[in-house]
Nucleic acid binder design. Structure first.
Length: 785
DNA sequence: CAGTGAGCGAGCTTCCGCTTGACTT
């Protein structure tokens, strides 16, 4: 048995380190935290100075027993979790749970996974930093208090199973506020004037733009009229060298942004692919906020750049992390071997690796050098000038390898080319001039990646939580990813022809379309407004930054963690009690639309048990007296913020009896899966081309008959002896349905329609006999779209 | 796109950060 046990956080890391350390060392992984607060209750003892009640989660029990056994067998245990707040806490929990002592255990840290770094770490061990551990306990306890005291308020006041937290609620706030900025945005038109001039040779053209935009049509016509008569001279030519520097190597956040822009991956997708590359030993750890490169990586980059491009392309650069609250326990994300140009794996892995490698290499390359030329053209008798700019790349530098993308589509317009040679004082002739009406642009909606960038700027969330947080706010239905259809608008174009005439044309363009952007739902907006009204301090963009300052003081040993929590709790909890007990006349987010002309009853919209609903008539009190209110769910695209009385009343026209067929009523309605026709206890979806409000009996019958035909094709085989068992055609090919459960047909069976009843029952029996532990229940959420 | 189309209500839901599985009917 080995004398030494090293415990790290990640199994991939354990494997690598074990190779470096040799046979005297056994290296195991803790797989992150091994203990946490009780899962089902708050898990904090408020009567005993906020003592956290830690438990080992069931899925960690087996691992912890293994670690205990290994620790007992070793002479020395080396706690080698990451060097940050969470890592220090992991070591401390291990120390406590494994029953270690100062004699038989040591705390070590290393910043790069090289033999040298690890051996040096072992030579310079230290003790567990209890102040840093306490900072983590404060963080954990604060998050638990905020989450577990706010969420139940939402269950009571808005809708069950909702959630609130220090991170997710602010993420939702960002999206809600951006959407409101967009709806309040008033675009302003202004005219952008461009002109083409001819040089004295009579053939070479120079395109230039007026140095300011013109506000009114009068200004436009005045200027164009002046241009028709004016003479033009080259007033000034200026040349300026410009340098561009490469972007720093990837962190989790910047990798997610660039992978989204360049490769179109979602944040979760990027992390999954990166995890794969990491486990295959191809890249360094993918959850990091550091832009630092190890000496090994710096040397390897230099070698790679000078070998491939030459000395001139190399430049040593050291980057410093700017983002708030960065903990820098790891390196930047980079290839483990800089010389490895490509990897084996699927196409996505190859592309992401390529992106990481190029970004890393480029970060150690020379600046790109450009020459920017600006030509100013004077209009005789006018104060305005025309300006032409051009850029020429004189040295490509890092651009040879990598060019960072931008979210802003307008930036790409600047890709100006070479300008023709001109001389100062030269006279030009105007060939044409055009004034095009352009509108100011509304703020952009967030994408997953741009939300991550904003969260990182605010210091909210960590590299390990960006992707899960985005998932959570979508699971709670605060936010959806969706498209917005563009709207058409007209704009004017004034053009001056060679003959000096001004023509006006009206053109149209589609604007405002959006694809795959984060949009707030009604629930998201109602919850946000409620929390902003009741807990503005927690929703403040600086809340995290402020508590982080306290955590830093705790880590420095200047502040007791329980005192910091006490200060917060004494302010926060009374407000929780006050808000919980506040009786309000109306439901949170409720809006009265008006009176139903048919009954005289009031019409409301609000968040109901299952989401946004319209209600006609007041809710009945506890005594159940009075008439029952009527309900209707909002249709897709409708919002409780914008729906009108008219639209709301229309929702009650469904369900609607369309007609009769085969002696049974046909009823049109809208359900969770869209519009449908119910007939004889069966449901048929109504396609988009038809409307449930106007569908005719003939159209409905056609749909029903079509569905019948399709259903018949569904049945591959049925058995008279056992009507409960059917072989059906499904999305994934034929399968067996038996007593409300579905069974896979083994791949070895070529013709499922030839199966006998006995064979089918055998398949069913075999599947049912599998131990329950092997049959994982499907989480409810995955059934959702 | 196999199947769901309801409506306070015994119960239950929830946070943030560390880490990977085992599962695809």
């Amino acid at each position: 048995m080995q004398k030494n046990l090293v415990i790290v956080e990640s199994p991939a890391k354990a494997k690598t380190i074990e190779k470096f350390l040799g046979k005297d060392y056994k290296v195991l992984s803790s797989y992150g935290h091994i203990r946490d607060l009780k899962a089902k209750e708050i898990g904090i003892d408020f009567n005993h100075d906020y003592a956290p009640q830690y438990v080992i989660p069931t899925d960690k029990r087996k691992l912890v027993t293994e670690l205990k056994t290994a620790a007992k067998e070793a002479d020395q245990v080396w706690l080698a979790s990451d060097e940050d707040r969470e890592g220090e806490a992991i070591s401390w929990h291990l120390y406590v749970v494994l029953g270690l002592t100062p004699e038989n255990s040591k705390r070590i840290v290393f910043h790069e996974i090289t033999k040298k770094a690890i051996l040096r770490a072992i030579e310079t061990p230290r003790d567990i930093d209890i102040n840093l551990v306490n900072a983590q306990q404060a963080r954990r306890v604060l998050d638990r208090i905020v989450g577990f005291e706010l969420s139940p308020i939402l269950w009571k006041k808005v809708k069950p199973a909702l959630s609130a937290g220090r991170v997710q609620s602010v993420a939702v706030r960002l999206i809600v506020e951006r959407e409101r900025e967009i709806s309040a945005f008033q675009s302003e038109g202004a005219y952008r004037v461009t002109a083409t001039f001819l040089l004295p040779d009579g053939t070479t053209a120079l395109r230039a733009e007026l140095n300011r935009r013109l506000k009114t049509e009068e200004e436009v016509t005045a200027l164009l009229e002046a241009c028709a008569k004016a003479s033009f001279t080259i007033e000034d030519i200026s040349r300026k060298p410009v340098r561009k520097s490469p972007a720093p190597p990837f962190t989790t956040s910047t990798l997610q942004q660039e992978a989204a822009r360049k490769l179109g991956y979602s944040v979760a997708q990027t992390m999954m692919i990166a995890q794969h590359l990491y486990e295959s030993g191809l890249i360094t750890y993918m959850r990091t906020d550091s832009v630092n490169l190890s000496d090994f990586a710096l040397a390897a980059s230099k070698e790679e750049i000078t070998r491939t491009f030459g000395d001139r392309y190399y430049k040593f650069r050291q980057y410093h992390t700017k983002s708030k609250g960065a903990q820098e326990a790891h390196e930047a994300i980079r290839p483990t071997e800089m010389a490895r140009e490509s990897v084996t794996g699927n196409a996505q892995e190859k592309k992401l690796y390529d992106l990481i490698r190029k970004r890393t290499i480029a970060s150690q390359m020379a600046d790109a050098e450009l020459e920017r030329t600006t030509i100013t053209v004077n209009i005789a008798g006018q104060t305005e000038k025309f300006v032409a700019t051009g850029e020429v790349l004189t040295f490509d530098g890092f651009l040879q390898v990598y060019r960072e993308s931008s979210d802003d589509e307008n930036e790409r317009e600047q890709d100006n080319g070479i300008l023709p040679p001109v001389k100062q004082g030269e006279t030009l002739t105007l060939k044409d001039a055009t004034a095009t009406e352009r509108f100011t642009q509304r703020p952009p909606r967030y994408t997953e990646a741009s939300l991550v960038r904003r969260m990182e700027e605010l210091g909210i969330g960590r590299p390990s939580t960006y992707a899960p947080t985005i998932q959570t706010i979508q699971n709670r239905e605060y936010v959806t990813k969706g498209n917005i259809e563009g709207v058409s608008r007209t704009f004017k174009v004034f053009s001056l022809s060679k003959t000096g005439k001004i023509k006006v044309a009206e053109k149209s363009e589609v604007y405002g379309a959006d694809h795959n952007k984060l949009l707030p739902t009604d629930i998201g907006m109602v919850v946000n407004d409620f929390l902003m009204g009741t807990f503005p301090d927690v929703l403040d963009y600086n809340f995290t930054a402020n508590v982080e300052k306290s955590f830093d003081r705790i880590a420095e040993g200047e502040l007791e963690w329980t005192k910091a929590i006490d200060k917060f709790y004494k302010l926060f909890h009374p407000n929780v009690v006050k808000v919980t007990e506040a009786r309000t006349e109306h439901r949170v987010g409720e809006r009265e639309l008006g009176i139903d002309p048919a009954t005289g009853d009031p019409v409301f919209v609000k968040i109901g048990r299952f989401g946004p609903v319209v209600q006609i008539g007041a809710s009945r009190g506890d005594d159940k007296s009075g008439p029952k209110p009527r309900f209707a769910t909002l249709r897709k695209g409708q919002s409780i913020e914008t729906i009108t009385l008219e639209e709301a009343l229309k929702l009650f026209e469904l369900p609607r009896v369309v007609g009769e067929y085969e002696g049974q009523e046909m009823v049109a309605a809208i359900g969770r899966f869209g519009p449908f026709i119910r007939h004889d206890g069966k449901f048929v979806s109504i396609p988009k081309a038809l409307d449930p409000m106007t569908i005719t009996p003939e159209e409905a019958i056609e749909l029903i008959e079509e569905k019948k035909k399709k259903d018949e094709a569904r049945f591959v085989k049925t058995f008279d002896m056992e009507p409960d068992l059917e072989i059906l055609n499904g999305r994934y090919g034929p399968y067996i349905a038996y007593k409300k459960k579905n069974y896979r047909i083994p791949k070895s069976i070529e013709d499922p329609s030839a199966l006998t009843l006995e064979e089918c029952l055998a398949i069913v029996k075999e599947a049912d006999d599998k131990p329950a532990s092997e049959r994982k229940r499907v989480p409810k959420r995955t059934a959702r779209k």
